[in-house]
Amino acid sequence: MDEEYDVIVLGTGLTECILSGIMSVNGKKVLHMDRNPYYGGESSSITPLEELYKRFQLLEGPPESMGRGRDWNVDLIPKFLMANGQLVKMLLYTEVTRYLDFKVVEGSFVYKGGKIYKVPSTETEALASNLMGMFEKRRFRKFLVFVANFDENDPKTFEGVDPQTTSMRDVYRKFDLGQDVIDFTGHALALYRTDDYLDQPCLETVNRIKLYSESLARYGKSPYLYPLYGLGELPQGFARLSAIYGGTYMLNKPVDDIIMENGKVVGVKSEGEVARCKQLICDPSYIPDRVRKAGQVIRIICILSHPIKNTNDANSCQIIIPQNQVNRKSDIYVCMISYAHNVAAQGKYIAIASTTVETTDPEKEVEPALELLEPIDQKFVAISDLYEPIDDGCESQVFCSCSYDATTHFETTCNDIKDIYKRMAGTAFDFENMKRKQNDVFGEAEQ
């Protein structure tokens, strides 16, 4: 370990593993360490099931009705991949897709007046949907046509809207959309967690709705994908990429100290040895004095023996409960997957309800979601602090990732990755940087 590296990475969460992969592909010498004996950090999948019970201090362990412990891979952080989103792009560019198998999530649902409705995925579904009345549908269709044709580089498509100054509230007004449709559009399509976006320039919202539609167009059922064997497969896929390009991995490796000289990182000390480096990437748990708390998320993992009611017996789905429907500031989400994804025993389902904490009784906040899941065989409640770095790391060369937020997709995580890359490399992130180099010394032969 007593060696000189360009970059040392602490923690094998998804953000850290993707950055480690990119740095290795770009010719950097990388050492990647984790104090845990497993990959994934906060974003790991726990197996066998006995391990999950232990982690949540349920000492009696799983009953026999849960089947074989080894058949379970339970995500600690519930997220899906947008089919046309940035993480899929990263997987394709790096060819990490060859280590993973994905399934399309069967449906996306939205909560309205105590019931759940399928988010329409085709024009026919939209016309048949009970989510809105006849005239509302016509106006909504006009709005969707506007979004589909919108091109930020072609003012002819703006229809009198200025993407940089017109607020989204004004765009909704222009198409005369009612409150329910606005809730549905902002939260189930643009996937905002709160209503803060309404008074911001509309460009980002329009682009988010386009991303949803384009992702949906790829597979038809929903815009989301999920990897077989759980999300823990993602960091491992990128760790393989890093290793192929010469990255060194050490799990179960305690970090005793991060060594600084004149305010700059110069190395990491572990078990009496020092590895030197020019730059350091880590998750917040490794540098508690360089991060601040930015809120909390509650996630309740529920094991069920039945599909969720009114989802047409889907073996995977997402449910969004827009905040307006339950008098909150932030949406509540449910991600459900099952034995069909090799993450649970035969006939079992895993539904994870999550939201940003707003009160001193977080469990009560998630109740509307839990009511949709009854009866629940077993619950595991996790309340996590969200951390963000206190500075950009440019001076110390210590670059810290943000905690995983309450969103049900990876777009915010990818933004964090691109942002850290830019601060480390001094140049904007470009997907081309992730391409495997042809015929290089570490390149794998085609399968």
Rank of each mutant, 00 (worst) to 15 (best):
A148P: 03
N149V: 14
N207T: 12
E50D: 10
S270F: 10
F380E: 06
G41D: 06
A344M: 14
D151G: 05
I287T: 09
L92M: 00
Y224D: 00
K112M: 01
Y38E: 00
D289V: 06
Y349V: 04
D331C: 13
S213E: 08
F410I: 06
K210V: 08
Y197Q: 15
V366D: 01
Y53S: 03
K142L: 00
G347Y: 15
L280H: 15
I46T: 10
T12D: 14
M168Q: 01
Y5K: 09
K269R: 12
N26I: 12
L228G: 02
C400S: 11
L280D: 02
M168T: 07
E271G: 10
Q325N: 12
D385E: 00
D2P: 00
R292I: 12
K379S: 04
T248P: 02
E204K: 11
R328H: 12
T194V: 12
N310M: 04
V110P: 15
P155N: 09
N153W: 05
G186Y: 15
V343I: 15
F143H: 04
V255D: 15
D71I: 07
R292T: 14
D313G: 11
Q236K: 00
L231V: 11
G133A: 07
K118I: 12
L14A: 14
K174E: 08
F56M: 00
Y53Q: 14
G160T: 02
I244L: 13
N262C: 14
A344V: 07
G443E: 10
G27E: 06
K89I: 06
D440T: 07
M168P: 02
E159Y: 07
D440Q: 05
D6H: 01
Q447W: 15
K418I: 10
D361Y: 06
L234Q: 01
P288Y: 01
D419V: 08
Q325W: 10
T94P: 03
V119E: 06
P288S: 09
V357R: 12
G295I: 10
V96L: 10
V105R: 10
D361G: 06
S401K: 03
V265S: 15
V119Y: 03
M434I: 07
I209A: 00
E374W: 14
D195H: 04
I352W: 08
V30G: 03
I420R: 15
T407I: 06
T407A: 09
T165N: 00
E395Q: 13
A188D: 00
G247M: 03
E204M: 15
E273K: 08
D440V: 00
E51W: 14
N252K: 06
K329Y: 14
K435A: 14
D416S: 15
G263I: 14
D151N: 09
E271V: 03
E106G: 05
F238R: 02
P227C: 04
K28Q: 14
Y111L: 13
D195G: 06
